[in-house]
């Protein structure tokens, strides 16, 4: 496939120098971006591994929590457990901060302690049982894991977007910009050589005309 050249370019030495400079710059940029892309991919794969294990942890914790909740409801009563949970609700403050991974801004979520002690949950100890404590504790731990998972998933999303963006840039440089600059430089070089040849013949022709007159 023939590579296009930059339209409207003037075949001058000045333009050749400018374009050669741009070509070497673009090539350097391509190499740097390629390195950034590879590093981002390595980081991405590392974080993806964390996502998998964090998701697995959340699923397993929630499975246990729901099972405990089921037993607690069966023993204490679904209505009573519902009333207790309504009275135990609270706001949890989650704080956001930003971390920079190779120019990618990813969130860091931090929260107050979610897991409460037995006497902090808002229900008495006489008509309740240990399964309710276990369900509550497992849901609280699951919530901590979910917030952590949200942080990791957002990091993965941001890294993936950056990898995609960098990949597009590398491809654009590698397959469009650099070849086009290269082709244009080649075109100008050829055009200048041609012009040189034309000028040489013209001069030769003038010289011959002058000699025949002389």
């Amino acid at each position: 496939m023939a590579t296009d050249i930059i339209e409207g370019v003037k075949p001058t030495r000045m333009e050749l120098l400018k374009l050669s400079h741009r070509e070497s710059l673009a090539d350097k940029g391509r190499k740097l971006l390629k390195e950034k892309r590879d590093a981002l991919i390595a980081e991405f794969l590392e974080v993806v591994k964390d996502v998998r294990s964090a998701r697995k942890d959340v699923e397993s914790k929630l499975r246990t929590a729901y099972h405990d909740l089921f037993i607690a409801q069966a023993l204490i009563g679904t209505r009573t457990v519902g009333e207790i949970s309504g009275a135990c609700s609270r706001e949890i403050k989650v704080e956001f901060a930003i971390k920079n991974i190779m120019g990618v801004k990813v969130p860091i979520l931090s929260m107050e302690k979610i897991v409460r002690k037995l006497n902090e949950r808002g229900y008495g100890l006489v008509n309740t049982n240990s399964k309710l404590d276990e369900a509550a504790r497992n849901f609280e731990e699951a919530l901590e894991l979910i917030i952590k998972l949200a942080e990791i998933e957002e990091t993965v999303k941001k890294l993936a977007q950056e990898v995609e963006k960098t990949k597009r840039r590398v491809n654009a440089l590698e397959y469009i910009i650099v070849p086009r600059l290269r082709a244009t430089v080649k075109y100008i070089r050829m055009r200048l050589e041609e012009m040189e040849r034309e000028s040489f013949i013209r001069l030769k022709h003038i010289k011959a005309t002058l000699e025949s007159r002389g």
């Binding site: 609270r90 006497n119 808002g122």
Partner: peptide
């Protein structure tokens, strides 16, 4: 102070029992 119903509920059970 704490909005924790534990204190009320535990006390109620204790009064009764």
């Amino acid at each position: 102070k704490s909005k924790n119903l534990f204190y009320i509920e535990a006390k109620l059970d204790k009064i009764f029992l």
